[in-house]
Design a protein around this nucleic acid. Sequence first.
DNA 1: GAGTCGTGGGG
DNA 2: TCCCCAAGACT
Length: 349
Amino acid sequence: MAILPPAAPLLDWYDRHRRVLPFRATEGAPDPYQVWLSEVMLQQTTVAAVGPRFARFLARFPDVAALAAAPEAAVMEEWAGLGYYARARNLHACAKAVAAAGGFPRSTAGLRALPGIGPYTAAAIAAIAFGEAVVPVDGNVERVVARLAAEETPLPAARPRLAALAAGFMTDAAARARPGDFAQALFDLGATICTPRAPACALCPWRGGCAAQLRGIQAELPRKAAKRARPLRQGVHFLLRDAAGRVLLRRRPPRGLLGGMLELPGTPWRDAPWEAAEALEFAPRPALEWRSLPGVARHGFTHFELEMRLFAAAVPELAAGEGEELRPLAGLDAALPTVMRRVLRLGEG
DNA sequence: GAGTCGTGGGG
DNA sequence: TCCCCAAGACT
């Protein structure tokens, strides 16, 4: 096992240079609800994107009880645009469990049992909100540790070893004394100094103690397994409006891609392009006079790219059928996932 | 272990 | 334009 550098220089650096973030407590003990909420929002989501959304969410659902009591559709709508919508469903389920239990579990093991809380998030909440002596291992920590130890095994195979190395930090008394600060110090180091592309080693509190930097390979670590190409898929969606300016929407099935979110009705998304007649079989009211709108909307998902076209029609008055929902076009964007905002935009031209 | 699951910003 | 990446979890 490689020798890790001492915690003290990192904590000193953190005390001088830590980032001021909207979701980071400035005075007193952090609120477990806010720590949990921010950690879930930050899963695979940038600090910049989370900032305003955290404040907005907190204003609407100020505590666990408020969130637990809310309808799921309201939670999904508040999450719209943030992505990874399973997080919102799990967040709601977790809030109900926590409210019923009278509060958050205070240990990593207890937190880990809740929906949407995995190994990282459990450790982060335990360390930051409850002072448990654990090291949450996120992408920042993996990168920092891979460089400190000059670990050349590619991710994800290296993950267990990097986690074991990171856990070794807690043998240091200085880290054990401030587990929450130590975790956030690692995050800040990874975000501002030990960055993915061009790490600022000259500014690093651990310069001289980093095996990768001593060998000059720090920018190449951590290595990663090659990714697969993303296929291109095609879809056609339907914008049906009435004279009152309302739009026909559907709610997607609760699980899977965009689960539980609103969408414009449409065809399945498949590899081959759609002929108009073929696509219209999926129109919500196939007998109407549908016209094809010019333009194509593109959207990249994690594992495929999507091209969408839009057909439009209008009727004097709409009645929502089974699984359908009517909403005013004005302000509709806010309730939709980004992919649907993009295709809807084709209808504005 | 390998897939699935969103989105926006930066190089 | 394209690729990479971000305080990952779940199956």
